[in-house]
Amino acid sequence: MQNEISKDVDHKRFVAEPLTWVVNYADYLYAFAMSRLRNEAVAKDLVQDTFLAALQRLDTFEGKSQEKTWLTAILKNKIADFYRKKSSVALRDLKISDAEGEQHNFFDAETGHWNKEHSPGAFGLEAEDPLMMKELRAILNDCIAKLPGLWSAVFSMKHMDDLESELICTELKLTAANFWVIMHRTKLNLRACLQKNWN
């Protein structure tokens, strides 16, 4: 299939056919959005926004790339916008210093020791059973959904998109120091959430 398409590349320019978009690309774009957002409602919204935005600028589709590539590029921008919006709302709601303050729940403020009630305990899965991993992953997705917006934006961009830390700081207007505080906080929270809901 892929080969047939690429053979045609030299011979003709691609034509946009919006009436076939849903059949041809909706599932692909949805899976793409899900891999980055892990949230069904948001992924659906962004797929819809992508199609509608693409219709608005059909005239900018020059036929140099395939429709799929073009639509995916629009979706990528929508996802980046989503992160930016989410983190700016979160910045308004939650200052970085709050993130540092909350850290004291996990550790003794004086000594930096784990507070007993937050001290990690074994998950009790020695062998990595694929079914267990699947269940754990579902729990983890719920835990991410509960994070403050800025944290989940930072974490998603780092781990799902595998972006450079510097790029994330620029995008979300964070200092490197704040970035690492958030990464640390996020992992402490996710780990605790996983333990609480798994055991």
Partner: peptide, 13 residues
């Protein structure tokens, strides 16, 4: 690891 092994291919509209 749980993150990087996530497969979105199973998700269909």
């Amino acid at each position: 690891r749980l993150f990087s092994s996530f497969s979105a291919a199973d998700f269909k509209l």
